[in-house]
Design a protein around this nucleic acid. Sequence first.
DNA 1: TGGTGGGGCATGTCAGACAAGCTACGACGG
DNA 2: CCGTCGTAGCTTGTCTGACATGCCCCACCA
Lengths: 240, 240
Amino acid sequence: MAFTAPSETLSGSIATDLRAQIARGEWASGDRLPSEHQLAEIYGVSRATIRTALQDLESRGLTVTRRGVGTFVTGRVSGVRADLRELASLSETIRSHGRTPEAVYRSILLRQAETHELASLQLEEGDEVLATERALTADGETVAFSHDLIPARHLGPDFSTTEVTGSLFAVLEAHGVRAVSAVTDIHAVHDPDLGWGERPTDPTYLLLSQLHFDQDGVPVALAHTHFVEGRFHWSLVRHR
Amino acid sequence: MAFTAPSETLSGSIATDLRAQIARGEWASGDRLPSEHQLAEIYGVSRATIRTALQDLESRGLTVTRRGVGTFVTGRVSGVRADLRELASLSETIRSHGRTPEAVYRSILLRQAETHELASLQLEEGDEVLATERALTADGETVAFSHDLIPARHLGPDFSTTEVTGSLFAVLEAHGVRAVSAVTDIHAVHDPDLGWGERPTDPTYLLLSQLHFDQDGVPVALAHTHFVEGRFHWSLVRHR
DNA sequence: TGGTGGGGCATGTCAGACAAGCTACGACGG
DNA sequence: CCGTCGTAGCTTGTCTGACATGCCCCACCA
């Protein structure tokens, strides 16, 4: 048995393995997964660990489990769309859809944080931030324009703006910072002046304003990403 | 101990109780919850049940639990915004923000389903649907325009269009159908011709296209709701 | 023919135990 | 005096085996 993605816990890696199976279409919509007892035997773990993994699937809307019956794959999450719940590098997401991502930086600078940025990033007057403007492309097509902010204190004293390439997450992880969650506001924006270079004919964007946190709840980045409507599809499963 | 909301399972009702506590602000951001062992004693259940409840909280981004340390309240979900993960009646959501909701119907009719609607609702040629157009208001201010579709077979033979009032969920539940999940596509729309009556000056909308399912995975409604940008705020917590 | 009850299997919950990670604090050595 | 190390005692993660309870199906009986 080979797990596709590393995870901290046993149940976590089993959950990602099962999620990958579903994503690969190994279980059709409506299929019943093996019982918890069988899965425990298959993976060589206890039923408790399997239950933890299955609860992860259900919380993501990938399965529905009914007492006395079993757990069933909903399988309604289409493969060509990004799950809004899943916080992943945009580059990774594009690549997982079989397209080639690129981040084209328009500006990279270290500057003092502006007043309205202080509160959300928990900064103090005069603190410096790394401010970047990027266009994100898939196979050369511009998919989004992003304005990102990282407090300089996360980047260390010997930071140089020349090392900024590719994904926002990559920059952070190069300095030992791992963004694990983000509070996201979602807006619709129509602005002909937004963007640069090859602009879309319809200047309508889906804006995700995201405040990223590390595992200790410390804010590590503030990102405003404008997705060109029609070029990137977001979806998610909502629950009662 | 009184649980605020009924739930199928013991762990489920404990989870909603804990969620309510957090929503009421009984735990501040960063607070550590009692240990699983203590919670088990408090609620008079086993540790396994508590763990199931805590996994629900973590999957919603309300808490973070660290091995060997404890589980901590993130408490970053602001109260004035709707959680996109949570599938609730829009009317309920508006009311929970202290405003008065109203659904103003523009049209209600039974008609044959159109070709492009058949597949997603799993209908066959000639099947009838209830098609409605509504404006949703909060304290009289139009918050969204919605086009909704319900297959007639869910409404029974003695259905009359006169009974359609208020929430979409209410109409369904009046006929014993309970929508428990929805696959949602999110788009930005700019269309001066969209909407009716008191239209917003900026015709930019956040469109949620939702296919609702009952607990058995049967599609029960297709809703296209255009939220007037700036009048309703959606947010969610994303996770790695 | 039709309803009814039970058997088997599924998930939900319980109890107790051990493994393993984290924090705090005190002993120890520099 | 200060820093380092180890350990005690907490936490969550996993395991085992058991019982409670819900669901489905089918044999059985009226």
